[in-house]
Amino acid sequence: MAKTWKEWEKPLLELDEALGKLRELARVATPDRRAELERRIAESEQRRNRYIDVMYSRLGPWEKVLVARAEKRPYSLDYINALFTEFIELDGDRRYGADHAIVGGVAFFDERPVMVVGHQKGRNIQERQYRNFGMAKPEGYRKAMRLFDMANRFRMPVVTFVDTPAADPGVESESRGISEAIAAAMQRMFELKVPVVSVVHGEGGSGGAIGIAVANRVLMLEHAIYSVIPPEGCAAILWRDPDRGPQAAAALRLTAQSALEYGLIDDIILEPHGGAHRDPPGAIRAVGEALARHLAELGAFDGEALQADRYAKFRAMGRFGEGAA
């Protein structure tokens, strides 16, 4: 079983590579040779697209885990920079330190001021370290709280971008109260009298994710995941075997499709052909359209109604029996 999206997509990536070489040849070829090469390019593209159709039509829960973690997918700052204008990053929890695994600030969306907050991962070693692999410490959640408060005071809608494997589990985070920070951030989101929309676009990892995802509308990208525990961790606990992640992924029903079916999220944003990582601008456009629609719908409600709606929505989550067995 593949452990990374590149392993899983290997045949596809090989086709992509071959296609790239053909294109390079065509670029430098003589005009008579070019026609033949272009015919072969068109053929290869067709073959690759059919291959994508086949692979992506049977994307199981484990493959979604791999795709959701793909480092070529747009990250939160990619969405923020492309979809918002005049973004100014604001930082610091005013208590202990800066946290680069959660970013946030003010910006404009369709010329309206909004507060944006999101987890941020890194793409290379230095970036990953700087972003702590997208795992926020207490100061990240406390910064988010500060920004939520400000949004509430200045009547700005809040948009959050969720993409984290988990909150930081280290000694430092425990020392400074990571659990309290997550709980307090959720609590703060329940107080907001402004529209809140959350987009789970990659990994929705447990408490680290829900800490900034108490929203009136929770949207998920088609191949994003949202889970109470990472599948590897679940497998380690249940079967003492982290390699049984694929089975755990299936058991946990961590896909956007399951979450929507259970009524735990509000909408799925379709990804471009072959996933967000194959066409980042396409994915960003799709997210922008969904945000515009949901923010416009929420704009019709006053602050009290928005707060009540958020409470009622989460209050109703959960399934159990009542009465005699």
Binding site: A183, M186, Q187, F190, E191, S206, G207, A209, I210, V214, Y226, S227, V228, I229, C234, I237, L238, A251, L252, R253, L254, S258, A259, Y262, L264, Y311, F314, R315, M317, G318, R319
Partner: peptide, 20 residues
């Protein structure tokens, strides 16, 4: 974890009740 994402949502639900 046997209740999947439902169980993650429960932590938001109890937090909301504290808030009230």
């Amino acid at each position: 974890m046997q209740e999947g994402l439902f169980s993650l949502m429960q932590i938001a639900k109890t937090t909301a009740a504290v808030q009230r």
